[in-house]
Simulated scan of single mutants.
Amino acid sequence: MEITGIISAIIIGIAIGALGRLVIPGRQHLPIWLTIVIGIVAALAGTAIAAALGVADTGGIDWIELVIQIGLAALGVSVADGMYGRRKR
């Protein structure tokens, strides 16, 4: 992977992680680095799922892929918040 690929993965991970956090109601007690990691993993997994479904390469913005990525990020943030919150208390 090239350095531009790593930088773009981090930027996309920040955006997807933040959107995943916004979808979950209430306050999450997660550090920002964990949100970024969840966003990067969700972006990569969402792209793989969209490619498997055949909706990854469409003309214009890939809305279905974006919804899958945000949904996975929301699921990841919810699970991580449950685990991280229990550990802190």
Rank of each mutant, 00 (worst) to 15 (best):
I61D: 14
E65W: 09
D57L: 07
G76L: 01
A45N: 05
G76W: 03
G60K: 05
G54Y: 05
L72W: 03
L44T: 10
A52T: 09
L44F: 12
V67Q: 02
V55W: 10
A73V: 01
Q69E: 13
G54I: 05
L53A: 15
A48I: 07
G76H: 07
L75Y: 03
A51K: 12
G39F: 00
G39C: 03
I70P: 11
L75D: 04
A48V: 06
L75N: 03
G46E: 00
A52I: 08
A51H: 09
I68L: 14
I70N: 12
G60N: 09
L72P: 02
A43R: 02
L75H: 04
V77W: 04
A45R: 03
D57Q: 10
A52R: 08
A52Y: 10
E65C: 11
V67W: 02
L72S: 03
G39V: 01
A50H: 11
G39M: 00
I61S: 12
L75R: 03
L53I: 11
G60H: 09
V77H: 03
L75C: 08
Q69D: 07
A56L: 10
L66R: 10
A42E: 13
A48R: 04
A50N: 12
V77Q: 07
A50I: 10
T58P: 00
G39A: 02
I40S: 01
A43K: 01
A52Q: 14
G39Y: 01
I49G: 07
T58M: 06
A74D: 08
I49E: 06
D57F: 11
A52V: 08
I70C: 12
E65D: 12
L44W: 11
A56C: 02
G39P: 02
L53V: 10
G46I: 02
Q69Y: 05
G39L: 01
G59Q: 15
Q69H: 08
D62L: 06
V55Q: 10
V77A: 04
A43M: 05
A73D: 00
Q69F: 05
A42G: 13
L72Q: 04
I64K: 09
L72V: 03
T47H: 14
G60P: 09
A74P: 07
W63S: 03
T58V: 15
I68F: 13
L72T: 03
